[in-house]
Computed example of a mutant assay.
Amino acid sequence: MALVVGTYEKWLTNGIDGDWIDIVSPAQLFSERYSEIKVPKSRISGRHIVKVLRHSTPIINFIILERSPSDREVYFGWVSGVTGVPVFKSSDEITIRTFEKYFKSLERHRLWGDPTSVDYTNRKLGGQITRSDLVDKLGNWVTLSIRDGKVHTFGFFKIELSDGRINPEDSGYLEIFGEVFTEELRFQSEINHGKQHIAHYTNKVFIEYGNEPKIRIGFCFYEFSNSSRRAGLQAEHIDGFFIDERDTVRNDILGFKVGKDFDFEDTTSRKKLAQKTLKVLLDQRRLSQTVFDDAIEKIKSSSL
Results as ranks from 00 to 15, higher is better:
Lys41Ile: 10
Asp293Asn: 15
Phe241Cys: 02
Ile16Arg: 05
Gly84His: 13
Asn14Ser: 14
Ser45His: 12
Arg230Trp: 14
Ile64His: 10
Pro58Tyr: 11
Ser269Thr: 12
Lys158Gln: 10
Glu32Cys: 07
Tyr120Asn: 08
Leu185Thr: 06
His48Ile: 00
Leu106Asn: 15
Ser56Tyr: 11
Asp239Thr: 12
Glu169Trp: 11
Asp252Phe: 11
Pro86Val: 09
Pro26Phe: 01
Thr7Gln: 06
Arg43Phe: 03
Ser162Lys: 05
Phe103Tyr: 15
Asp71Ile: 15
Lys104Thr: 09
Thr267Ala: 05
Asp266Tyr: 14
Val79Ala: 09
Gly127Met: 03
Arg186Asp: 07
Gln128Leu: 14
Ile198Asp: 01
Ile176Asn: 09
Thr83Asp: 13
Ile296Pro: 00
Phe157His: 05
Leu134Gly: 09
Arg110Ser: 10
Gly126Arg: 04
Ser132Tyr: 14
Thr13Arg: 12
Ile146Lys: 05
Glu175Trp: 08
His48Val: 03
Lys41Pro: 06
Tyr102Asn: 06
Ile243Gln: 11
Ser91His: 07
Tyr209Lys: 03
Arg230Val: 09
Ala27Ile: 00
Ser68Arg: 02
Thr116Cys: 09
Lys214Trp: 11
Lys158Thr: 14
Gly178Met: 01
Arg72Gln: 15
Leu144Pro: 01
Phe292Val: 01
Leu287Gln: 00
His109Asp: 06
Leu278Pro: 03
Ile238Arg: 02
Arg246Glu: 08
Ile215Ser: 08
Lys150Glu: 06
Arg67Ile: 09
Asn167Phe: 10
Arg72Ile: 07
Gln128Pro: 02
Asp170Gly: 04
Val50His: 12
Thr57His: 07
Pro40Cys: 03
Val74Glu: 12
Ile60Phe: 14
Ser145Val: 08
Val258Ile: 15
Ser303Val: 05
Leu134His: 13
Asp71Pro: 03
Thr267Pro: 03
Glu245Trp: 04
Tyr222Glu: 04
